[in-house]
Amino acid sequence: MDVTTEVHGEALIHRVSGRIDTGTAADAERKLTAEVRQGRRVAMDMTGVAYVSSAGLRVVLMAAKLAKANRGAISLFGLQATVREVFAMSGFDKVVTIRDDEASALAAVAP
């Protein structure tokens, strides 16, 4: 899995691609929690993510908890249908902010 990061005003966008699963979870954790640990405001572009298993959900949950603990913010957008289904099934759509598009995801993390 790969992450590229763009700066958008006070917020960052992590553009994520590939799979977030058992094999990539450690790498994903490093890449997706570094900024929220600093209290940054992050929107995660999930358009390029075709697969998230429970190992991937754990990383997202950790990022959301770190964002809250460090007074940052996090939102996700562009979830593919199968990925969105996994989030809904596990109730993660209730603990993580999910938006349809980039503009609303950025608005959701704005101070």
């Binding site: 429970s54 949950l61 996994v86 099934m89 109730g91």
Partner: peptide
């Protein structure tokens, strides 16, 4: 069963894998 209604602070990851297996 994991508590899928829990708030962010209370939310854990335990049991989620097998829960997804049952759901899918």
């Amino acid at each position: 069963e994991p508590d899928i209604e829990a708030s962010l602070d209370d939310r854990g990851i335990g049991g989620l894998g097998m829960f997804l297996v049952r759901e899918m």
